[in-house]
């Protein structure tokens, strides 16, 4: 199987405008390279300040018009709009919660048998990935389906009113854990990594150019690829809608969320996370920016802090080891 997967090439072009320098250095891609076409039309029914809409904009810009989206029940199936109209300018297939990846397997097989290179993208929330869609996801990765699975993670079931999911972090308040969650977040990345896909990455909505670059890379690879995107949710995480980007940046700066990519098993920590893994900002700034960590028990906060520290060490060590080889 490994022989059939294509090689990864990254196009880097010079930056004409000095304003773009900072962005260029931070993510390796300039704003001028982003296509102007919009595949998410204006007036979606998403909340004001929704980071899922922002992510989807850049994912579809990276994928282009030759794309089929497969969507299980999630916030984005609402963002599409009501029946006679839709805000999506690419074909979207709405499917039951548990079967998104299985459906994408079928679509991918039919397109490949026709000899078409159409991008098949599953855009699922954390509920549809971490909890309900896990067996279909595992099956599709085991079969080596040629598709991209994107999990946008708002760390709860946002569409139905912020119920706890397997992806909710320790200590976070949700409507079904009013005293804070007592279990740690499920490590979906390690579960997917166990299937050894050719490319997998994590991204954050606060760094859309980084996300754009990773989607481009993932679509160039033949075989199952996975991107895990952190998508801060203003009504669910209880912060004002103008802070969506700031909270995403804080998650990366405090080391709560690490941006990395793993190509053929080789881990590389992405540029926005480089400073954070060396000297992370105190986790208290991340807690105080959101209402869902209000009144968190100091013991639980300490537990979460240790978990974050362990996680950072794990990634740094893995990167060092993959450089040695």
């Amino acid at each position: 199987m490994a022989g059939t997967w294509g090689r990864i090439s990254t196009a880097v072009s010079p930056f004409p405008n000095p304003h773009y320098c900072v962005v260029y250095m931070r993510t390796g891609i300039s704003m001028a390279e982003i296509p102007k076409e919009e595949y998410v039309l204006k007036c979606t029914s998403g909340c004001a300040g929704c980071s899922s809409t922002l992510c989807l904009r850049y994912i579809l810009k990276a994928a282009g018009p030759e794309t089929v989206l497969v969507m299980p029940a999630c916030c984005t199936s609402v963002i599409q709009g009501a029946y006679p109209n839709t805000a999506m300018n690419v074909p979207v297939y709405n499917i039951a919660f548990a079967s998104a990846a299985a459906c994408a397997s079928g679509i991918s097989a039919s397109y490949r048998s026709l000899g078409k290179k159409t991008n098949i993208i599953v855009y699922a929330g954390d509920g549809g990935t971490v909890d309900i869609g896990l067996q279909a996801l595992s099956g599709a990765f085991e079969r080596g389906t040629d598709f991209l699975y994107i999990c946008y993670d708002n760390e709860a079931y946002g569409n139905t009113g912020m119920q706890r999911s397997g992806s909710t972090p320790l200590g976070a308040l949700t409507t079904t854990t009013p005293a804070g969650k007592i279990h740690a977040k499920k490590d979906i990345d390690s579960i997917v990594a166990a299937h050894s896909p050719p490319y997998m990455a994590s991204a954050c909505s606060a760094y859309p150019l980084d996300l754009f670059k990773k989607v481009r890379k993932a679509l160039e690879v033949r075989g199952p690829t996975f991107i895990h995107v952190l998508a801060p949710c203003p009504p669910g995480w209880r912060f004002p809608s103008d802070q969506t980007i700031e909270v995403g940046k804080l998650a990366v700066k405090t080391g709560m969320w690490i941006l990395w990519e793993r190509e053929y098993g080789k881990l590389k920590i992405s540029a926005p996370s480089r400073a954070a893994v060396k000297k992370p900002e105190p986790l208290a700034t991340y807690f105080s920016a959101q209402g869902r960590f209000k009144g968190i028990d100091p013991a639980v906060a300490e537990q979460l802090r240790n978990e974050v520290r362990r996680n950072i060490q794990r990634f740094v060590r893995e990167e060092e080891q993959s450089c040695d080889q």
């Binding site: 007036c43 904009r57 859309p208 809608s241 969506t244 980007i245």
Partner: peptide
């Protein structure tokens, strides 16, 4: 770059018909 609704066009004019007023641009 950061507008979730793509309500700000290339010439950086805000489309007030579609802007939901989230305030990300101001922040």
């Amino acid at each position: 770059l950061y507008c979730p609704e793509a309500a700000i066009d290339e010439d950086l004019r805000v489309d007030v018909d579609f802007c939901k007023g989230c305030g990300i641009c101001a922040t």
